[in-house]
């Protein structure tokens, strides 16, 4: 069955997007990313440590020819810093597809929606293809789509919290109203959360901490791979209705005592 995940001008078969943060080493990042079978991976943009550069670099392990690299603006708290960051990323690797996230404070890491909208407008004007991290707010999601973002990525719960989907109804409403892909980003803690996101109709899930902080990172990467597939299939298959009472699974006629 052909089921392409289309984001802007890009096409993917996998509906799992992974992050590259929080891993204990580059080798584990590489192995878990391979195990996830994801095709898109987020990276952060930071100053090179001039006094201690280290011998190795993330991109020695995550081959940009093999993966679609999605630079993010993690750590940005205003639109200007986010735009500067992504201009640098585009120059570094030629990447035009980007993840915009502008945060509100360091405790909640909730999106600063006002600055996010401002940054999204600036980036779209500079021909970036913007996948935008935001609140699970249907009004804001629509606004970001109108601005020209190629995907809207509502949070399931705060970044790194692993608490699953706080507001599944909103994820469904956002998806029903959207004409661009909806990606649940942040909050997914284990496989059932990822499956649930896709069952609700989300087009993809973006997962980092749940894999990177698992005891066995590669096994969790496989679990997420399968969960995203299962959730997607269940969504496409169309689930049965929920009923208040039982409905017998075996025929209710032809009993031997009749």
């Amino acid at each position: 069955m052909s089921d392409i995940f289309k984001v802007g001008t890009h096409e993917f078969t996998s509906r799992l997007i992974v992050g590259s943060g929080k891993y204990k080493d580059f080798e584990t990042t590489k192995l878990a990313t391979e195990a996830s079978e994801a095709e898109m991976i987020t990276v952060a943009v930071r100053r090179v440590n001039i006094t201690d550069m280290g011998k190795e670099n993330l991109l020695d392990y995550i081959d940009p020819k093999k993966y679609t690299i999605l630079p993010n603006t993690a750590g940005c708290f205003n639109a200007e810093d986010a735009v500067r960051t992504l201009r640098l990323a585009r120059e570094a690797g030629g990447w035009n597809l980007v993840k915009l996230e502008v945060l509100g404070d360091t405790e909640t890491l909730y999106p600063n929606v006002v600055e996010t909208i401002k940054a999204a407008k600036m980036l779209v004007a500079e021909d970036f293809e913007v996948m935008v991290y935001t609140n699970d707010d249907p009004i804001v999601a629509t606004r970001l789509e109108e601005i020209g973002c190629v995907a809207v990525m509502p949070l399931g719960n705060p970044i790194g919290s692993g608490r699953g989907l706080a507001n599944p109804f909103n994820i469904r409403v956002i998806k029903q109203r959207a004409n661009v892909p909806i990606v649940v980003d942040a909050g997914i803690g284990t496989a059932s959360d990822a499956a649930k996101a896709l069952e609700l109709g989300a087009d993809a899930a973006l997962i980092n901490t749940a894999i990177a902080e698992a005891k066995d990172e590669c096994m969790m990467a496989r679990a997420m791979r399968d969960a995203v597939r299962a959730g997607r299939l269940a969504h496409l298959a169309g689930r049965m209705p929920k009923r208040a009472f039982a409905s017998a699974s075996s025929p209710t006629e032809g009993y031997i005592w009749d």
Partner: peptide, 10 residues
């Protein structure tokens, strides 16, 4: 001068 590269991040 700002000189940046890519590191792990979500």
């Amino acid at each position: 001068i700002e000189l940046v590269h890519m590191i792990g991040g979500g």
